[in-house]
Nucleic acid binder design. Structure first.
Lengths: 117, 117
DNA sequence: CCGTATCCTCAATGATACTG
DNA sequence: CAGTATCATTGAGGATACGG
């Protein structure tokens, strides 16, 4: 109850094979995570630059989503203690490996959208 | 406000390329949709069979998620008006094309899980 | 510049009971 | 068998203000 995705620890035998899928879904879940991962792929971006690039996101949500991605080992945070502070976000090696998934989602989404207009 | 994903209509120029990704994410969003799509891939499954295969899901949620997937053109519903009623769910052609995405998510999830233990 | 701290809302999900 | 109808819950997300 309350989990957004189910069955990480409690996979029944029959759905066991689905668990890594749910795991991946769980990690890219979140209103802004897809777009964040997409923007960060193959480059470092500063906090405010991210904020400006993603219209509508609040500082709070950007921080939260970045923190979760960081905790999941997908995003790296690099702080330069200059004044003013400079914080750069980028994908970890593991995070970069999400790019093909994002790419295939883009392909599918394009096909979907072309059929529904 | 209230949208789980953002920017379908309001994509700024900078994030425009991400929209199909968000669209795809939007369609597989939902606590049980990933697993439902996974189970349905390449076969038809009856309502109660789905329910039994997915531990923890309620009838209500199964119905809701199936209806949404149906509305999104990913799932087909086939009713045989026998007694008792027989309703089979399967993926549409478009829905089947999600399988590679699910598959790559499974790969990534497996790698992720192997690194975190 | 890069956040945290509060407070609040609502939509997604769940529990449970009922039905053609 | 395959749902629908209600009601309750909760946590993700948003608005806003403040801080190092």
């Amino acid at each position: 109850m309350g989990n957004r995705l189910n069955g990480f620890g409690a996979c029944s035998a029959e759905v066991e094979k689905a668990c890594p899928v749910e795991m991946t879904l769980h990690i890219i879940y979140g209103k802004w995570k897809g777009i964040i991962i997409d923007i960060l792929s193959h480059k470092s971006v500063r906090f405010n630059e991210l904020k400006r690039t993603i219209p509508g996101i609040t500082q709070r949500m950007l921080t939260l989503q970045l923190r979760e991605l960081e905790a999941d080992g997908v995003v790296k945070r690099n702080v330069e203690n200059t004044v003013p502070k400079k914080v750069e976000y980028s994908l970890t090696e593991l995070g970069e490996k999400l790019s093909p998934i994002i790419a295939s989602m883009r392909l599918w989404g394009n096909e979907y959208m072309s059929k529904n207009e």
